Simulated scan of single mutants.
Amino acid sequence: MYDERIICYASVAVLIPILCLLTRLAYILPAANNPSNSGVSDITSIIDGKKNVNIMILLGSGGHTGEMLRLIESIEWKYFTRTWVLSSTDKSSLSKVQEVERSLLTAKKEEPKYLMVPRARNINEGLLSSIKSTLISFISISLAIIRLPVLPSILLLNGPGTSVPLAYFIFLLKFLGLCKTRIVFIESLARVNSLSLSGILLLPISDRFIVQWPYLSQKYKRAEYYGILV
């Protein structure tokens, strides 16, 4: 009888924390619904842009960088402070975003922040090697973000591999109640019939998940479609 009581108490002690964690997870996971597309006209509408918010934007090099810079052309930057996340080896994207920053004419110019982190996965990288590089990227991203004086209000992503560790670390902070960052993922224009691997992994945790082809919004319940945005 004594042993049975110990087992019973131990089981309850283990199950209650697990139940609390699962309840918390269910509470913060974005609701599985399809928002109405009425009134949506540009990226500012999609990210629910408001005054005096901090937006963190990941530039993924090459085509991803080009698409992202086209996506954000219509943003009224005077309402945002900016944190750019780039691969530590991506000098081209850094040069392009610095050019964008120089061209900004805002009523109250805020100095942007740049986070240079290791790339999560290189092109044609093997599975084992990509797992290692993703872990290194996650650790590096974690250390960089916790040093920020203010965590972002919005995280804007469009598909490069580094978006996965970045978004999941932000989601971990949300789980712990340390931030309320809205994760907005916009799938690449190149993804016509299926989501990218990054998209599949980020679909459950993204507050807004945007695709640029109607078929994808029909195939994936949480995907929102507003036409081609780039």
Rank of each mutant, 00 (worst) to 15 (best):
I139D: 10
I47A: 02
L105I: 07
E187N: 07
D3P: 04
I146A: 01
L22F: 12
N34Y: 13
E99C: 05
V12E: 04
K109R: 09
S36N: 04
A107V: 11
L71H: 07
I186T: 03
V192F: 11
Q98H: 07
V97Y: 02
V184F: 07
F138S: 15
P17G: 06
M116E: 11
Y114F: 15
P112W: 12
L202P: 01
I141F: 03
P112K: 09
V164I: 10
N34C: 01
R147N: 10
I228M: 15
T134Y: 02
P35Y: 09
K78Q: 04
I205D: 02
S217D: 10
M56N: 01
A32C: 11
I139E: 13
A223I: 13
I141D: 03
K221H: 10
N52S: 06
R119G: 10
F175Y: 15
L22W: 14
K132V: 14
Y2W: 03
P30A: 13
I75M: 14
A26R: 15
M68K: 06
W84A: 10
L59D: 08
E4Y: 13
N193C: 14
G66Q: 08
L178Y: 14
I141R: 01
F185G: 13
L195E: 08
L58V: 13
L143I: 03
R121G: 05
A190R: 13
P149H: 00
A190W: 13
S140I: 04
G199N: 03
S142I: 00
L157K: 00
L22E: 06
I28E: 01
T83V: 14
P152T: 02
I72P: 00
L176A: 05
N124C: 06
V53Y: 09
S88F: 10
S45L: 00
S140Q: 04
I123S: 07
V164P: 09
K113N: 10
P214Y: 04
R102I: 00
E76F: 02
L69W: 00
V100C: 11
F209W: 09
A144S: 08
I55Y: 05
S163K: 00
L143W: 01
G126H: 14
K109C: 03
V211S: 11
W77T: 03
F171P: 05
E99D: 12
T83H: 00
L143R: 05
D207L: 05
F169T: 12
L21T: 13
I72M: 00
S163C: 11
L216H: 05
G63D: 11
E99N: 09
T181H: 08
D42K: 15
C8N: 12
N122Q: 09
A144D: 13
K132Y: 15
I136F: 14
G60R: 09
Y79T: 12
Y168S: 03
A13Q: 04
V211R: 04
P17Q: 12
R208C: 08
V97R: 02
L155V: 06
K78P: 02
W213S: 14
V117K: 07
L15E: 08
E67H: 02
K180E: 14
E76Y: 04
I46C: 08
V150M: 11
S129E: 09
Y168W: 10
N52K: 09
E73T: 01
S93Q: 06
L166E: 05
I123M: 04
T44A: 07
S88G: 08
P152M: 07
R5C: 12
P152Q: 09
Y2M: 09
I18E: 07
I131C: 12
G39H: 13
A223H: 15
V97L: 03
L71M: 08
N37T: 13
Y220F: 15
